[in-house]
Design a protein around this nucleic acid. Structure first.
Lengths: 203, 203
DNA sequence: TATCAATTTTGACACTGTCAATTTTTTGTG
DNA sequence: CACAAAAAATTGACAGTGTCAAAATTGATA
């Protein structure tokens, strides 16, 4: 019986994947401030310069982690929309908004990489495609809420994005006063969103 | 005639103020990634360890810069509200929202320090007071829009904050597709805001 | 003037990302 | 199988960072 389903082509085996996993673990467990290329190498059991063969720079590793974050993010939002009780466009959008903030709260450091880190997006094709997929997903949900014949889908989608991005950012950066319940802010802000982007009344 | 209105009590004179100014200049001219305690010292013309006497750590200097950012921020939002044409609560709030995003776009690195940087807020009293003042300013503007007898002012204020914070963040982090005009997103999103937080119709 | 405290400098330490040179291992081919 | 070529990993170095301790310098004060 083979020891591993994945063959070990070279010395370490899957150093690329191991580094991605190590970096993801650091971000999840200790946050961005503890993220270090040398620490990733340490956890992978290789020398400090070994990552150079797989990632030209620390930003490249972070880009790959962010790209995978987007893949998971899109899947979770899709699942949340499909799990919405009423399946109306409004409720699907609200469910996605809830899932958006939930993802950010569950993975704050990775969310930071995905949506706020200053990085050259042109470099990683994976990151470019994955983030574009998230935008398309949002635009479709917003288009469904607005109905046909609306030329301002992208502007309204940006509005929706800004609101959930703002809520998520304030929460994970601990900027809201402790007396404010994040859950209530999320619920009330999201409930007013479909009407707000339609430019009509609440119901 | 005295050479300086401000007396020079010790060797350098006003190293505290000089460091704050140097740090602010770096943030404005080159961004956070170029901000370094040693570079601040260099610009102030002192040795690399001299700042230690005035700021226990690099975070302390950043906190003071953020606090002064809040002071200017509050003043600009007040001025914008007072300069609004109609002076209705709705228009005052919208004017403040516009000024909020404008401040972030004009001072992205300082905005980052004020609203997103992970720092121990308990340390600097100046920062604590200044940021609290900004929150009070927002709550009052939102209370005026909601009218009397609304117990949910703080939740709605958080809603407003999240929207403008989200817009500002997406813009300064260059997350919006180039085809989207930030000005239109700002205008349309803000115009729907008063009605959205009232939970009533648009007008 | 002499002492003392505040301020600054100097030098060091551990840490980081990145690079060049070297060594080790795997692959491919004659 | 042998052996060259390529890939991967190690070693060692460099410049840079924040922070700290010890020493030196300067202003105030008595």
């Amino acid at each position: 019986m083979p020891k591993k389903t994945k063959q070990k082509p070279y010395h370490h085996g899957d150093l690329y994947e191991t580094l991605v996993k190590a970096g993801t673990d650091i971000l999840k467990d200790d946050g961005l401030e503890k993220f270090t290329l040398r620490e990733c190498a340490r956890r992978a059991g290789v020398s400090h310069a070994a990552p150079k063969n797989h990632f030209a720079s620390v930003e490249d590793l972070l880009s790959e982690i962010a790209a995978r974050g987007f893949d998971q993010f899109v899947a979770e939002l899709d699942a949340a929309a499909d799990a919405a009780p009423s399946q109306s466009p409004d409720d699907r959008l609200i469910a996605m908004g809830r899932a958006y903030v939930a993802f950010a709260r569950a993975n704050p450091a990775i969310y930071l990489m995905m949506f706020r880190h200053a990085q050259p997006f042109d470099k990683s094709e994976h990151l470019q495609k994955a983030s574009h997929g998230a935008w398309v997903q949002l635009e479709q949900a917003v288009a469904a809420v607005l109905g046909p014949g609306r030329p301002d889908v992208n502007t309204r989608a940006a509005h929706v994005w800004a609101l959930v991005h703002g809520i998520a950012s304030l929460i994970i950066d601990r900027r809201l006063h402790p007396s404010i319940d994040p859950g209530i802010v999320i619920a009330t802000s999201l409930s007013s969103l479909p009407a707000a982007i339609r430019g009509l009344g609440p119901q």
